[in-house]
Design a protein around this nucleic acid. Sequence first.
DNA 1: GCTAGGTTTTACAACGTTGTTTACTACGTT
DNA 2: AACGTAGTAAACAACGTTGTAAAACCTAGC
Lengths: 344, 344
Amino acid sequence: MAIERGPPVGASIKDVALRAGVSVKTVSNVINDFQFVSDATRAKVRAALEELDYRPNLSARLLRGGRTGVVALAVPEISSPYFAELAAQFVQQAKGHGWTVLVDETQGAKDSEHVVLEGIKSHLIDGLIVSPLALTAKEIDQRRDHTPLVLLGERLAHAPVDHVSIDNVAGATTATAHLIALGRRRIAAIGSQPHISGGTAALRLRGYRAALRTAKIRYDASIVIPAKSYHRADGYAAMHALLDLPAPPDAVFCFNDLLAIGALRALHERGRQVPSEVAVIGFDGIEEGEFHTPTLSTIRPDKAEIARLALALLERRITDGPAASPREGFASFELLARQSTARS
Amino acid sequence: MAIERGPPVGASIKDVALRAGVSVKTVSNVINDFQFVSDATRAKVRAALEELDYRPNLSARLLRGGRTGVVALAVPEISSPYFAELAAQFVQQAKGHGWTVLVDETQGAKDSEHVVLEGIKSHLIDGLIVSPLALTAKEIDQRRDHTPLVLLGERLAHAPVDHVSIDNVAGATTATAHLIALGRRRIAAIGSQPHISGGTAALRLRGYRAALRTAKIRYDASIVIPAKSYHRADGYAAMHALLDLPAPPDAVFCFNDLLAIGALRALHERGRQVPSEVAVIGFDGIEEGEFHTPTLSTIRPDKAEIARLALALLERRITDGPAASPREGFASFELLARQSTARS
DNA sequence: GCTAGGTTTTACAACGTTGTTTACTACGTT
DNA sequence: AACGTAGTAAACAACGTTGTAAAACCTAGC
């Protein structure tokens, strides 16, 4: 005959109350530091809490109208260093707000993002920070779930949502201008996404073109290579394609660091010297670039600031409710000039 | 005068019931596909659900005794590529179990891991997968929270917990033997952790020593460099220290890939040729190593298998309850021989 | 027309928590 | 001696959901 075990759950307030010989509400009062509890009662209850190793049931608390102290961060791809580093910032800084961050991965898939937005997990979390890849302003506008939301990344026109972004056009212009300042004139770009308008890629392309225009360099679409995704392998393939051209570039602006690292790999394989023959700059400022050979020049958005701003907006949104008018935050970026664009 | 808005919450079952003109329970029955519901009623309720855009309150469902469909994965550091890639595997595969994975970061801090284990978030999730850095078997044994748990990483002796690991000793032996097979005899190690017994570092050190012993190479403690953490900068510093020795090594086994990448950077700065002068091998098989210059040899644990096994164990644990005897899973690994250990 | 048997729907309770209301106590005031 | 008043404790309801059990509704068979 099996030994009868109790249910595998922790003690509830009721158990504590029973043990302390007080009412359920009194226990709740002690837990929540309600003022009118006598020292004797408080001590009794504290002891019972200790003995039974009580811990609150967040579901119940939330159901009752409270908060869980948990916010979710949804990014397209956890394994991408940029998002991983960004997530780490969020986790760090959320502590200051008394929040635990749970990271969710959307795989950039529209339906996943949709699901996130539509609140599969609603009522489990206090708020939601989403870095969208595929969502449109309309979808965001039409969302029915009312979990407080902050978006990261591109400003989606007309979407009435709190929002944190960096100036991608300016960042791209800075990167391209940096290459021009080295004396390069045939500057390729890797990572355009012709079929997606208004996204990060489009903005970075615009910044690239702006810098060319300022320097009176003709825009040559044949050395602007699209990339479906932003992985090392995409940059690798794109760079090989560039090197196969009759007139290869003397510099490349990659729309993110992973593309740049793939490009560097391809250049190395083809025996091209970096930066003397081809200079390379990326975007994102991931740690990997600092240790690559050669070290990678890049535009580094201030990830800590992004996290700080987004969490502040979320906090405000939760406090003010859904009716408050949406706000936006802008994080800064910096140019990190390293070996891949050193003056040769 | 402000327009009066309803509360910012979605419709509940009660609202749906009211709209459809049926009882609350009938709505619940429709939602849960209870068999005895007439087609007419079902249709009515479905319509109301649609119109009000109903979505379930997971807190309430969980409180009532159900499941949320959410499991948490707690790793020491999200921004570490190994954990990021591992997390991605979990997110992918959890779909097959009908789970959403939320990733939590413990920062390797003992109290954070403790907090995770002690169930701050208990009652919000169906299960928990933890990759512990600092936890001891005793703490795990004494945990009071009864959320189904699976551990990743080292087998903690005597801890009666479900567990997935790889054979770290064998992996380290394979790596070291690979260096020996190249003809190297002065083989350093980077990443030992003398103050932590039984952890990953200790096992990899044991494997390293075993390989040396087999090859009849004397163990030299002066070329085994400890590392507090496993970041690129630690490997970088350690390699510089090794190169400062009177008799520097002709090969290095780094206990993870980030250490190895830092070491490669240091070697490059000091003008040492890899692999001809110094061969380098890492551990983890992160994507970054595939694109580094030179490409990094490594031991790659099967991350997909780790995720698969861990999720299967968790599923079982949830089904069988806490009394079922703990099980373990072992994932395989493979040696990836790349440029950093190419025969010169 | 009545009953048995099955189908369909509903009322109720419970999960664990906390806001609101009510009740009791002890004290000092009139 | 009756009367606040402030401090303390408890009873109750409610959050949204679903299991249990009972009620209401059918249909067929006599």
